[in-house]
Design a protein around this nucleic acid. Sequence first.
DNA 1: ATAGATTAGTTTATGGCGTAAGGAGTGGCA
DNA 2: TGCCACTCCTTACGCCATAAACTAATCTAT
Lengths: 261, 261
Amino acid sequence: MVFAGQGDARRSMSLLWRSAGGGAARPGPKPGLTVDAIVRAAVAVADEHGMAALSMRAVGERLGRTAMALYTYVPNKAELVDLMYDDVLGELPGGYPSDAGWRPALASWAADVRAFYLRHPWVLQVSQARPVLGPHEFAMLETLVRILRGTGLDAAELRGVVGAVTQFVRGAAGAVADVRRAARETGVSDEEWWFTRSPLLEEFAGGLDERYPMAAWIGEADPPAADDRTPYLERDAERTFAVGLRVLLDGIAASVARSVG
Amino acid sequence: MVFAGQGDARRSMSLLWRSAGGGAARPGPKPGLTVDAIVRAAVAVADEHGMAALSMRAVGERLGRTAMALYTYVPNKAELVDLMYDDVLGELPGGYPSDAGWRPALASWAADVRAFYLRHPWVLQVSQARPVLGPHEFAMLETLVRILRGTGLDAAELRGVVGAVTQFVRGAAGAVADVRRAARETGVSDEEWWFTRSPLLEEFAGGLDERYPMAAWIGEADPPAADDRTPYLERDAERTFAVGLRVLLDGIAASVARSVG
DNA sequence: ATAGATTAGTTTATGGCGTAAGGAGTGGCA
DNA sequence: TGCCACTCCTTACGCCATAAACTAATCTAT
């Protein structure tokens, strides 16, 4: 998890909203880089090699500079991560048709956001503790609230729903992202991993099925279809998203029904 | 996020399930430490100062040893974290009465698990990508499934529900934990933080209310009660838990109704 | 034209991290 | 007694973010 530096809040805001300010000719050598170029390079590093591989060195190298060169443009790494975060949120689409009601709109919003998170899994490692307050973060909230307005719920209730939905999508995408990350960072596939663990579990923790009958029962449920090549831990995460989304939508519908009736 | 070392899976299992093996008298100096002592010390460090402060040096210091001394007992840091994880999961209670049905049982399970996560927030930073396969992790699953059996849903469906519930509680607790962590690690309270941001936001991103009317509308909703001293970001997280849990339970109830009818 | 100020980018250094390697001392057993 | 497995230490390596000091470029004012 990465936190924003609270060093100079003014500089931070100015960077996020990119208040031009670079008009006047200034002394000194011409800048060879731009904030945007740095942010793009950093996003590329994170997309390709994961958040763990995002170092100032790595970003600098990709731009043919040293790590320290970046500090001319960006106050520190935490701030860079915030910029990456808001920048990449700009990819999210905005207008969801409300003709068919909030339910299908919310479902496709969730699918889009999930896909987005899986495209940029490192985003899930940016702390949500304090909002970044960038333009695209606001836009994302705007889109979601616009959809949920269709439920007719009052603002206080809706605020809880917004949190629940946001959190659900993050969590579900995070589960998948974690599984993939583990596979990449350890170099061991889920199958290999389980293949070595399974017999050891029997050896050291024999009689599991008797000790944990419920866990055993549910563990054996629902074997994959013969043509399903999805790694099994990832399939679990997919299932959680599908079932969870349905449950969530049903639950919101129940709230709506209650508030009307 | 921290991953388990997949170095020696056998050793890892043997540690998790603590297969005694230490009976025979062995040559060499008497061990001054035990795995349990190390795990307890590590948990104490993480509880007090957070996962970020959990270093082999810090744990060693707490035990009056160097960092390297730990490597006699524990193969590496990732393995130690797994041991901490399963150890501390042992705190979770087991039997939830099913007299009143699954709903109240699930609600109090969620509350207990949430409280547990807030007692040991670092647990939320242990990757869920691959299960640790320790005794208490199994026990936790066992407890949850036992409660959910009361819904009468079939195993495949229940697996999705288990995932959704687990993820929800993790996510909701994580949000609160993140907020607290940010306050501690930056040394800036939510109030101070917002006090400096708020005017800057107006300065650099003027006209927010016109640009993001929905976000503005929901942002103004539901001011705190006069006697409420909870930091406001944390209050948002509390609300998300309350609303989210209700929505989740309603959603599960809808699934149950569908499967019966 | 030149001096001074300002800036971009470098090198170097500090103090953290996990952990590999090797050495010192301990104590049970042949 | 000597061996050797064992615990624990010191040292060292290569990472990390970033502070500080420096070089070199390029503007403005003289």
